[in-house]
Amino acid sequence: MSGIALSRLAQERKAWRKDHPFGFVAVPTKNPDGTMNLMNWECAIPGKKGTPWEGGLFKLRMLFKDDYPSSPPKCKFEPPLFHPNVYPSGTVCLSILEEDKDWRPAITIKQILLGIQELLNEPNIQDPAQAEAYTIYCQNRVEYEKRVRAQAKKFAPS
């Protein structure tokens, strides 16, 4: 494992614990031996107030490669969400998460999670990743928002 990646992720964890947006979660997972795995984080993004996503808490896994922060983490909703920019596998399609697009090593975990929260309610229809959600979003916004509200209710924190 890269010392650069681990040191950056340790800084990220410290900064997150000191200050993070209300309702968001970002925690490194534990290895079988109980030690912390900084390369694999369990996160959760709350649906934004005043949107059909409100009330939901959407679980996301963030996986970092050894060359982080040169390369972005892979962000994957578990379980996958109904959304035009979420692949059926759950992987998020967002330009700041793509090395050859808008990724920059200075982007923080907090910025990534806030960017994904923004994307939930403002899909990028130029870059669809899920045919069904994309089609319904474009053709029947009322039905799309109904499905999103049902999903938010399903993923409401207990």
Score class of each variant (00 low, 15 high):
52 P>L: 09
37 N>Y: 14
104 R>G: 04
58 F>K: 05
74 K>A: 15
7 S>W: 08
85 N>I: 04
37 N>S: 14
125 I>R: 02
82 F>R: 00
156 A>E: 13
62 M>W: 01
96 I>K: 04
127 D>A: 05
22 F>P: 03
118 E>T: 09
47 G>R: 01
129 A>F: 00
55 G>F: 15
157 P>H: 10
111 Q>E: 12
99 E>Q: 14
2 S>I: 08
57 L>T: 07
82 F>L: 05
20 H>T: 03
74 K>W: 02
49 K>C: 07
37 N>R: 13
96 I>R: 09
145 E>A: 12
65 K>L: 14
93 C>V: 09
106 A>C: 10
25 V>E: 02
35 T>G: 07
108 T>R: 15
119 L>P: 01
130 Q>C: 08
49 K>G: 14
102 D>N: 08
142 V>T: 13
25 V>L: 09
144 Y>A: 00
48 K>Y: 02
65 K>S: 13
117 Q>T: 12
72 P>I: 01
94 L>H: 00
44 A>D: 07
95 S>A: 04
155 F>D: 08
41 W>L: 03
11 Q>R: 13
35 T>A: 08
71 S>Q: 12
118 E>F: 15
49 K>L: 06
94 L>K: 01
92 V>G: 01
46 P>Y: 07
101 K>Y: 15
151 Q>S: 03
148 V>K: 01
18 K>F: 06
18 K>P: 00
46 P>I: 09
114 L>M: 13
25 V>K: 09
27 V>G: 08
106 A>K: 00
47 G>Q: 06
49 K>Y: 09
133 A>W: 03
10 A>N: 14
129 A>Q: 05
89 S>Q: 15
62 M>T: 09
128 P>E: 03
61 R>V: 10
22 F>Q: 04
143 E>A: 12
13 R>K: 05
112 I>N: 13
68 Y>K: 00
82 F>T: 05
64 F>C: 08
151 Q>A: 03
115 G>H: 00
95 S>P: 01
99 E>Y: 14
18 K>R: 14
109 I>H: 04
34 G>R: 09
25 V>T: 07
107 I>Y: 06
29 T>I: 10
106 A>W: 02
18 K>Q: 09
117 Q>W: 08
130 Q>A: 12
154 K>G: 03
84 P>C: 10
132 E>D: 14
65 K>F: 08
131 A>E: 09
5 A>V: 13
64 F>E: 06
45 I>P: 07
135 T>E: 11
140 N>Q: 14
113 L>G: 04
32 P>G: 11
59 K>G: 08
106 A>Q: 05
95 S>N: 14
108 T>S: 14
64 F>I: 11
63 L>M: 13
69 P>M: 01
93 C>L: 04
125 I>K: 04
73 P>C: 10
82 F>E: 05
41 W>P: 03
133 A>E: 01
143 E>Y: 10
27 V>R: 14
35 T>N: 03
132 E>T: 08
65 K>V: 07
24 F>H: 05
64 F>Y: 10
56 G>M: 07
60 L>E: 03
158 S>W: 11
18 K>C: 09
30 K>R: 14
24 F>I: 06
83 H>T: 15
155 F>H: 09
52 P>H: 14
100 D>L: 12
6 L>P: 07
54 E>Q: 12
156 A>N: 04
26 A>E: 02
65 K>I: 14
82 F>N: 01
141 R>Y: 10
123 P>Q: 00
153 K>I: 15
93 C>T: 00
142 V>I: 13
97 L>V: 14
64 F>Q: 06
71 S>C: 10
102 D>I: 06
129 A>W: 00
130 Q>I: 02
147 R>K: 13
69 P>E: 01
50 G>K: 14
61 R>Q: 11
132 E>Y: 07
45 I>T: 10
114 L>V: 15
105 P>V: 08
49 K>W: 08
133 A>M: 02
50 G>A: 11
48 K>R: 13
27 V>Y: 10
93 C>K: 03
16 W>Y: 06
33 D>T: 04
109 I>A: 12
109 I>P: 04
124 N>T: 02
61 R>K: 13
37 N>C: 15
147 R>D: 01
27 V>N: 08
138 C>W: 08
108 T>K: 13
154 K>V: 14
146 K>M: 14
32 P>M: 14
134 Y>W: 07
48 K>H: 09
38 L>V: 09
